[in-house]
Each structure stands twice: as structure tokens, then as C-alpha cells.
Amino acid sequence: MIRALLVDDEEHALNILRILLERTGDVEIVGEATNGFDALEKLKRLRPDVVFSDIEMPGMNGVELAERIGAGNIDVQVVFVTAYDRYAISAFEKDAVDYLLKPLEMDRLVKTVQRVKKEVQKSAGRDEIAASAEELEVRSSVERPPQLNVCFLGGVSVHNSRKMRMKWRTGKERELFSFLAFRKGERVHRDVIVEALWPEEHYQKSKVYLHTCVSFLRKDLRQLGFDGALLYESEKYHLKDDLFETDYEVFKRRAQKLKAVSFGRSVEALESALDLYQGTLFKDEDYSWAEEDALKLEQVAGELRMELAAQYEERRDYLKMTDVIFKHLAVSPYDEEAYRLLMRAQFASGRHEEVFRIYHVLLERFGELGIEPSEMTVELYNEIRRKERP
């Protein structure tokens, strides 16, 4: 049996919900409340497994109640009982256990109860594992603070030290984590998050969507061993500062260090920095809030690649020079200087036909923009043609 607390400001709605839940045979009603403040008081005392809460209530609505519960890191599920648009909710997350639609349907209610039971059982299993892990940690003489490995370059990837990957329930859950992790150290107001992730949605619906993502994210972080990692205070969310370090942070810090050195940047230092740059920031994700940062970071990476290519040329390592320029052109196909470097590399390697092909690729690219190559590029091409003649 799962223990449930029911919250609704309408007595008739409470009665219907209580009767239907009791009919499932799997729910024990441990308490009822008619407002959010009363619910919080009873929650502390009754310790239910799940709270069934209406959304629209005076004083403190259901979403705010859920936020307070989450802020207190209370291990209890919240199921919204709402008359919100069926199709909007379905489109957001068809598998969500967090919604029951009014008027209540018995079949849907039974499915929700079964899902809640599964989550309660999972939570109990995780608690046993966590207790065992804590006991082992106490016995260990070596302190190993848990760390979450977060990658944003080339796509979003998150895993713990045991290589367990975060399995996102929705794309918006992944975006919420990315948004907060990218702003590491900041306390981000709920309204700022809503505006960034759901700019076209009605504000009240967006708040419900945000809470659902927060609920999913807390559960998934807990499953990886990071309970209490997502914090809420004064309508602001943030991830614990010591929880993780992103590859974005590491690359940016390394690039800034190289930029501070006015001369003598070694090939090895440049290679090491670029090894961290596995692709564009949030590749394949449509995060409009990160577009400017992604462009700036790609510009930094491009400058490092071009400098590395020039140093390879000094070493006459034309194979590596060619490889790094091709990588650069894959993301910056209109960089004229890169085409010049590539032509020089191919000519020095004796691949004269490639020089002509590259030049014509440049002409096609620039033709798309309605511009002509610079005199410097044309002169280089003509010079190579003259050298190539017997």
C-alpha cells in the first residue's frame, strides 16, 4: 500500500479523489488538506509516499507547493490533479506520472497509482544502496568526493564516476540541466528559466512544465547518486557548485590561459587545448539561449586551430596541417585564410591537383555569398600555378 496525502480547496473534489483512490485497493489515505500551507504541515508529520494536489488553489497553488516540497528535499512524489489542456500535457511528456486530468477516469488513475508504486519501490531500493555506500565510505580512509562528469562540447552527455549515464526522460529535462549547469554558480530565478525554455507558452503552464522537469531531474540525479543536488530557494534554482566541472569550463579556462601568453605558445599546448574541444557547444540542440556563447566559443577554437596550422607549417608537418584545417573548414566554410593555408599545405605535399580543387571550392563558396576572393588569395593561387609549371 502507498500512503497518500490529498490536497484540494474544493471538498467535493477531495471526496471524489478519496473514493476513487480507495477503490484501487493500493492506496491508504493518510491525510487531507484544503490549502498548500496546511499540506506542508501535514506532510512533515504524516510522511506520505505521494501527494495528490490540485493546481489552482488560493494562497499557495499546487506548483508552489511542489516547489516547497522539492526545496526541502522531501522524498515524496507529487501528482497534479488538473483540468489543464490534455493535448498540451500529452505533447510535453506522454509518460509523466505527475498528472491526472479532471474529470478523473478510473483507468488512468489505476495506471498512475501503479507508476507511483514502482517509483516508491525504486526509491526504497536506492535508499538501501545509498546506506550501504555510506557505510563503505565511512570505513574508507580515502576521501573521494563524488563528481558528475558533464560534457557540453559536441553534444550533451552526463555520467557519474561509475560511467552510469543520465537517461533523460524528456528533451526539456536535458535542456533544464544544461541551462543550470552552464550557469554554474548562479542562482537562476524561476521566471528566467521559464522565459528561456518555454518562451511561447502561457506562464502558468510553463511553471507546471518547469516543475515536472525539476521533479524528473531530481529523481534522475538521485539515481546517479546525487541526492539533493538541485536546490531551490527564494524562487531561484541552482545546482550545487562542487557537483561537477564541465568540459566547456575546462576548455575556456585553457584557452584564456593560452591567450594570456603573448608569444611562445607551443604546438603541444595548442593540441592539448583543442583536444578538449570535441565539437560545437550543445551540438545538435536547439538552445536559443546559448547561440551567442556557442558562436564566441567556436571563434576561440577557430583561432587556436589556425595558429596550430601555422605552427605545423613551420615544422613542415603538412599532414597534420591539412587535418586541422579541414576540421576548421567543417565549421567555418567561408574562412578565406584557411583556404590559403590549405592550398599551401597541399602544394608543399606535392598534391598539386588538390590545390586547384580547393581553389574552385573556395570560388563556389564565395559565389554563394556573391563575393570574389581577395587579391592575396588570387596571387597565391597564380604563384602556385607558376611554380607547378615545368
Rank of each mutant, 00 (worst) to 15 (best):
M1R: 13
A4I: 02
L5R: 01
L14G: 06
L14C: 12
L14M: 14
L21H: 00
L21C: 01
T24A: 08
T24I: 11
G25I: 12
V30K: 14
F37D: 15
D38Q: 15
L43K: 08
I55K: 01
G59S: 08
E64F: 08
E67Q: 09
R68G: 07
A71R: 14
V78T: 15
I89H: 02
F92P: 09
V97H: 09
D98Y: 15
L104A: 01
T112L: 06
V116N: 00
Q121S: 15
K122E: 14
K122C: 06
S123N: 14
G125R: 10
E137T: 03
G154S: 12
V156G: 00
S157A: 15
S157N: 13
V158W: 11
N160G: 11
S161N: 11
M166C: 13
K167A: 15
K167C: 11
R169E: 15
E173I: 07
R174D: 03
L176K: 14
F179L: 14
A181I: 09
G185H: 11
E186L: 12
R190V: 13
A196T: 11
S206N: 08
S206Y: 10
V208F: 07
T212M: 05
L217I: 10
Q223I: 04
G228E: 09
A229Q: 11
Y232L: 12
S234W: 06
D241Y: 10
D242K: 09
A260Q: 07
G264C: 04
Y277G: 01
Q278F: 04
G279N: 07
T280E: 11
T280A: 09
F282Y: 15
A290M: 07
E291G: 01
E292W: 06
K296V: 03
Q299A: 09
L308E: 01
E314M: 07
R315N: 03
V324H: 02
A338P: 07
A338V: 09
A348C: 04
H352T: 03
E353G: 06
L362V: 00
L363W: 01
F366M: 10
I371T: 07
P373G: 08
S374L: 09
E375W: 02
M376T: 11
T377G: 08
L380V: 03
E383F: 06
E383P: 00
I384R: 05
R386F: 07
K387T: 06
